[in-house]
Simulated assay, not measured.
Amino acid sequence: MMRSVELFVGAGGLGIGISKAGFKPVAVMDWDRWACDTLRENKERGLEPVRDWPLHEGDVRQFDFRSIVETVDLVTGGPPCQPFSMGGRHRAFLDSRDMFPQAIRAVRELQPRAFIFENVKGLTRSSFANYLEYIRLQLEHPDVVAKLGEEWLDHLARLEDHHTRGRTQGLRYRVIMRVLNAANYGVPQRRERVFLVGFRSDTQVEWHFPAPTHSRDALLWSQWRDETYWDLHRVAEKHRPDGGAGKARAMGLSQKPEALSWRTVRDAIADLPDPELQPARAHDFHDHRFQPGARSYPGHTGSPLDEPAKTLKAGVHGVPGGENMLRRPDGSIRYFTVRESARLQTFPDNMIFHGSWTETMRQLGNAVPCELGRVVAIGVRDKLLLS
């Protein structure tokens, strides 16, 4: 079995995906108490695959990666993304929460055969272009370390010189980057994340990101052409939305798409009772409680039941209502429960989360969907097995 190290694990979305792809973590770490409490409780309950995770709670900046004696095949993680989030303060390299330097240090000290790092799409904003290139070049040449007191732009220039000289000595990685939409890989949520994947140069691996398996057009076809979607969910015609632009697009398709259908909110939660309308039945499901106070306002109108959810958000000050709400076909709204949000992030149904509703939604809103992590990790695993 191949070994991995998972940084900034949070509630475990990417880590669960990595483990399900067949990697055995030799170290899993995060500094957040609530997230670590979530993982500890699920470890104690024997939940696969977190049951055997060697969890380290603390500041990664204080962790000695050379204390890991096993050979590491893969380093993964989502360095805290607040500096780059579209909803954050956009401070990037001036933000002390930027943990990419620690991710790069882990690669330098562990020298894994490959790594997978992810972050929010906001990292690709034009205003961060130079810093993103700085991150990429450091990952390609992790042993070209910044000198004491060296400004990052000076270090970037030195990395550019080193890179263009084309030297083959030293620790080198071949790095590629792409923004992936989780909905295109079977996750019931439109969630875009940027992935940076690298292979150590001596592996001689040729690799590309996995092709999408699901599509919007396939969903629209199933809703408005052959209507199998409504039949599956037993939705009478009078209870269906009018379709609008989606229906018009479906009618313009010349043939049935070969891809699988995007998964919708209804696909994800149809078997769960509505916690507002059926509170007694909802109590049979863990973390499935009605949360009052949802409100709609321009630009934040919730996620329609028959589309993939909008991106779940963590928020800087609590949870922004419109991004974490369900919009029923009749136009009424309510917050997603923790259990529903976990479904939208493809966490295991028997996983429980620690903290208040707001704190738990923060953990979920910061997570990578488990299924998206698994799909990317399987592609990396298959190449490593052949190298």
Rank of each mutant, 00 (worst) to 15 (best):
G373W: 00
Y185A: 00
D349S: 14
H141D: 05
A282N: 03
V75Q: 01
V187C: 02
D30Y: 06
E6D: 14
W357H: 05
P112C: 08
T301I: 06
G78S: 14
T358A: 15
V319N: 07
F93K: 08
E133V: 11
Y131W: 14
V72D: 02
E41L: 02
F195L: 09
G243D: 10
A146W: 05
T164K: 13
F285W: 13
R51A: 15
R91Q: 15
H286I: 13
L139F: 11
H288F: 10
G244R: 00
E371D: 10
L232V: 12
G78Y: 04
K147S: 12
R216H: 12
A294Y: 06
Y297S: 15
P210V: 01
F23S: 01
I68N: 06
F290N: 09
K43F: 02
P80W: 13
A236M: 06
P112F: 05
S126Y: 12
D271A: 15
A103M: 12
E133K: 14
Y297R: 15
Y229M: 11
A342V: 01
F65R: 11
F336R: 01
V145K: 15
D217C: 04
V50H: 04
R343S: 07
L153G: 00
V5N: 02
E237S: 14
L14N: 02
K310H: 14
A211F: 07
R89Y: 10
F285E: 01
E160L: 13
E140A: 14
G355D: 01
C81L: 13
E41I: 05
A245F: 05
R327P: 02
R289W: 00
V265T: 03
A21N: 01
F93R: 11
P112Y: 02
T213W: 04
N130Q: 14
S67K: 14
T346V: 09
R113M: 09
L159D: 09
A27I: 06
H141V: 13
H90T: 07
F347E: 03
R374N: 00
V179N: 09
L137D: 12
T360R: 09
P320A: 13
G166T: 04
D284K: 11
L219A: 07
H214I: 03
S387G: 10
R327I: 05
P112S: 06
P212Y: 07
G331V: 11
G186H: 04
L384M: 10
V194M: 08
S296L: 07
E118W: 04
D98Y: 08
G186E: 01
H239C: 04
A309G: 11
D284M: 09
A114C: 07
L364E: 03
L132A: 13
